[in-house]
Design a protein around this nucleic acid. Structure first.
Lengths: 340, 340
DNA sequence: GCACATGTTTGAGACGATTCAAAAAAATCT
DNA sequence: AGATTTTTTTGAATCGTCTCAAACATGTGC
């Protein structure tokens, strides 16, 4: 094809390849006249540096991988945006990969990233304990866990999911709800399990008469939420929970949709609290109460930890950063319920 | 670091590097005994093939770039998902890049992708006529335009935006609206301009007494839609459009939110039609009518065209694929309006 | 046991950029 | 003008893998 090499540039500019390389990397050590001649040749030939060759020689990549559970979840889109902003400042490229919460797809992405010898990997793992992650670290690819706490071998950035679940459930209990649905799954995903644990704890703390009812879902999208909503709506009124804590906003949105299809009022018949506080939460049929996470900050911090690890491998100490979530109360959980 | 090369594997397995390479690429030509010995060595050393070196030697990358206007718009997330599914089948990696509709960010991404010598680039360009794109093609990086028609030098996959705009406006006119707001911008984005042109045409065709009122926005997100909604709501009732055609669903969602904040009923006071039919459209406060595009299909087709071009550069003829949009009518535009 | 086909393995170049010691050229000082 | 320092430029070696012609084994038929 029309791709030129440094050699051709050298030829046209009547200098050695070493000089062309110098013009590209340390232009200040090349005499102005030569430098100009080389630039001229570059322009004329439409030369574009081959980053692959550079990488091979230098042994250091300029791209980092970010593997998320679901690109189409705005939560991750925002995390990615935060990370990319920082990457950009460091002249680093970000490869966004989507695992769809599928361990197999995740593995394939990790394989490819490792083969590409990326600078490092940011990942929201399907399973944080997977040996694959330890392997990567051991072989020299730094890994930072995003939205999931590490155990010390890696850096991680997370939000206190247990606390988030607890706050959400406590809020519903305080509003007078006694039977609360927990909507989310699969439990193998750490975030789901932690938020459940938090909600459980709040329910325990409330004592007798308050219970948490599982509505486990197979996935974490709008459709799964709708399905869970249908299941709940189908229950006879006496058994039906009067509130639902959905483990993310997509589920909550789907759940809300099901309520309105089945003629149940929100928050009158069923109150809802979601998680993530994505932009759509506030724009929903009934504006959703939601547990907010600092999304961009999560991304920013993650990549900063990674870049720090890369730039000073010697003295780097792994850190586990944990942010606090915030409950944002909106219509969907506003009504007070008289106890029965 | 702990990264091993083919040479070390060869040493441990007591074979030549050529043989190791053969085991990796054409295992069938290696005798079973040797093959097993090599695999054993690979396992023992934790060898991971260096794709960078391979790429340099072979001259052919296994990754394609996808540059979109906005990762956090679910429309693009879906396009990406469609493309990635196909990429996956072809053992190809996808780099998702976000230009945020910023020509400068777009340029930087294109530079990086070209330097990485990717197999090809799928792009929803900020400006399809940019010489940068022609340059890429000329230098040997195939480019496929996504959601934007090409002029013959490249392949492209698009949806008939003019038709979409027309259908949306015609629908509102048919419902009895005479003054229709067009919400969207900047007009420098092709999709915006085309949808506007279509809506204009429908208004023209309706004859006297029907008009299109511009509410140009600076961006295409929820916030911009909310702002436009505020502007419209602030108008005295007699001048206020009774319907709005929003150039995408994010704008429509924001717009809808503004209506409800200002106490205007949808569709009673103002009817709304959005564009893209993202999952959230159906889940909105008032389920949104929207012009649906085949999102995954767009992505699939784009990368298929690219891979075809790459695999048979000789006889490849550039194609411009155009899909038809569909109007999905929901609550937000259902009410009939008696003419005044 | 020889000629020949068939099946395996080898090892010396690429690929395109970077690096760095050494050569060459230019500038400065006696 | 010659010696010395400083500034530029050079070119060979290198990164890790693939390729391919040639070398080497093994097996077959006579």
């Amino acid at each position: 094809m029309g791709t030129r090499s440094i050699k051709e540039v050298a030829q046209l500019a009547r200098v050695s390849v070493g000089t062309v390389s110098n013009v590209l990397n340390r232009p200040e050590i090349v005499s102005p006249a030569t430098r100009e001649r080389v630039f001229e040749a570059i322009r004329e030939l439409g030369f574009v540096r081959n980053e692959v060759a550079r990488h091979l020689r230098v042994g250091r990549s300029r791209t980092v991988g970010l593997v998320v559970l679901d690109v189409s979840n705005p939560f991750f889109a925002d995390v990615a945006q935060g990370a990319e902003a920082v990457a950009d400042e460091h002249d680093t490229m970000m490869m966004l990969c989507n695992s769809s919460a599928d361990p197999d797809r995740e593995r394939r992405h990790l394989d490819q990233l490792e083969q590409q010898r990326v600078l490092g990997i940011l990942i929201t793992p399907v399973d944080a304990a997977s040996p694959r992650l330890a392997e990567l670290t051991a072989r020299g690819t730094p890994v930072v866990l995003v939205d999931s706490a590490a155990t010390g071998m890696q850096c991680s950035v997370a939000v206190d999911d247990r606390l988030g679940g607890q706050v959400a459930a406590a809020h519903l209990i305080e509003r007078g709800h006694r039977r609360i649905a927990f909507v989310g799954g699969p439990f193998s995903i750490k975030q789901v399990a932690d938020r459940y644990a938090g909600a459980s704890a709040a329910v325990e703390a409330a004592g007798e008469g308050v219970e948490l009812v599982d509505f486990e879902t197979a996935a974490l999208g709008v459709a799964a939420g709708r399905a869970a909503g249908e299941r709940l709506a189908a229950l006879p009124e006496r058994e039906r929970p009067t509130a639902a804590f959905c483990v993310n906003d997509l589920l909550a949105l789907g759940f809300l949709q099901a309520m309105s299809l089945r003629g149940l009022k929100v928050p009158g018949d069923v109150a809802i609290v979601g998680y993530d506080d994505i932009d759509f939460a506030a724009a929903a049929a009934v504006p959703l109460s939601s547990v907010r996470q600092p999304r961009e900050l999560l991304g920013r911090t993650a990549i900063e930890l990674l870049l720090e690890e890369v730039s000073s491998p010697g003295e780097h100490r792994h850190r586990q950063v944990i942010f606090q979530p915030d409950l944002v109360v909106r219509e969907s959980s506003k009504a007070l319920r008289e106890n029965g």
